[in-house]
Simulated assay, not measured.
Amino acid sequence: MSAPDAWRLLRQATQARVGLGRAGDALPTAEILRLDAAHALARDAVHSPLDVDTLAAHLQEASGLDVVRVASEAADRAEYLQRPDLGRRLAEDTELDAGPDGWDLAVVVADGLSARAVQSHAAGLLAALLPRLAGWAVAPPVVATQARVALGDDVGARLGAAMVLVLVGERPGMSAPDSLGAYLTWGPRAGLVDSERNCVSNIRPPHGLSYDHAAEVLAALLTESRRRGLSGVELKDTGAALG
C-alpha cells in the first residue's frame, strides 16, 4: 500500500509547483517534461504575434465603438524585446485626434509580453467593464502592437483623455502564459512613472481573476481616481469592491 500524498490538497488549490517529489537527486521525469512544456508555452506567449483583425472585431462587438490601430516605434518583435524604450513611444507617423470635448477615459489594448493574454481576455474584460461606467465619455478602443504600458500615456495625451486604462499582456510565468494586466493612470502624459499608476493583474479566468471581479475593482478605482484627480500610490485599494 502506497503512502498517502501529503501534498495533494495543496496542489488542488494552486497552480504553483509544490510537492513534486524526486527521483534520486533530481525531479521525476514526468515533472521535468511538464516544466519543459510550461517553458515552451511561456516562450510562445512572448513571441506569438497578435491577431489584430480578430481582436479588433471582438473589441468592437464588446464596446460598440470603432477600433483604432497604432504601433510603437519598435519595428518588430526582436527590436521590441531588445529596446523596451521604443515600446513606450508611438511610431512617428501616428495620427490620433482628440474628441471635441475630450474623453473621460481612453482604453488601450497592448500586446505587451503576451499576445495570448490580450487575445483571450481583453474583449471579455471590456464587455464587463463598460456597463459599470455608464455616463462616461469613453474613447474608441486603441489596439497597440509592440507596445508597453507607458505607450498608453502618449495615446491618452493625444486623445485629450482625463485618464487612460491600458490592458496589456503580462510577462508570462511558468504557470501563467495568458495573464492580463490592467493599468490605470490619471492625467496621462509623457514622463510618468510606475508609482503614478494603479494595476489590477492576473486577469485570466478560471485560474485568475474573473472578468466580473476585475471589472468591479477597476470601476471602483476609475471612479475614485476621477473623483480625486489622481492615481498611483495615493489611490489606495479601499472599499468593498477592492477588498
Rank of each mutant, 00 (worst) to 15 (best):
R8H: 15
A13N: 15
Q15H: 13
A16C: 12
V18F: 07
L20C: 11
G21C: 07
G21V: 13
A26R: 08
P28A: 15
I32R: 13
L35R: 09
A42L: 06
D44I: 04
A45R: 09
V46W: 09
D51L: 10
V52C: 01
A56V: 01
A62S: 04
L65F: 01
V68W: 04
V68F: 02
E73F: 06
A75Y: 05
A78L: 14
P84M: 03
L90V: 10
A91T: 13
E95Y: 15
A98C: 04
A98N: 06
L105A: 05
A106S: 14
V107M: 13
L113C: 06
R116N: 07
R116K: 11
A117H: 03
H121W: 02
A123C: 07
G135I: 04
V138Y: 07
A139N: 05
P140H: 03
P140S: 05
V149H: 10
V149I: 13
G152Y: 03
V155E: 11
R158P: 04
A161P: 05
V164G: 05
V166T: 07
L167R: 10
P172I: 08
A176F: 02
E196D: 00
V200W: 07
R204F: 00
H207G: 06
A214K: 02
L218G: 06
A219V: 10
R226A: 12
R228E: 07
R228A: 15
L230K: 02
L235Q: 05
L235W: 09
K236P: 01
T238Q: 00
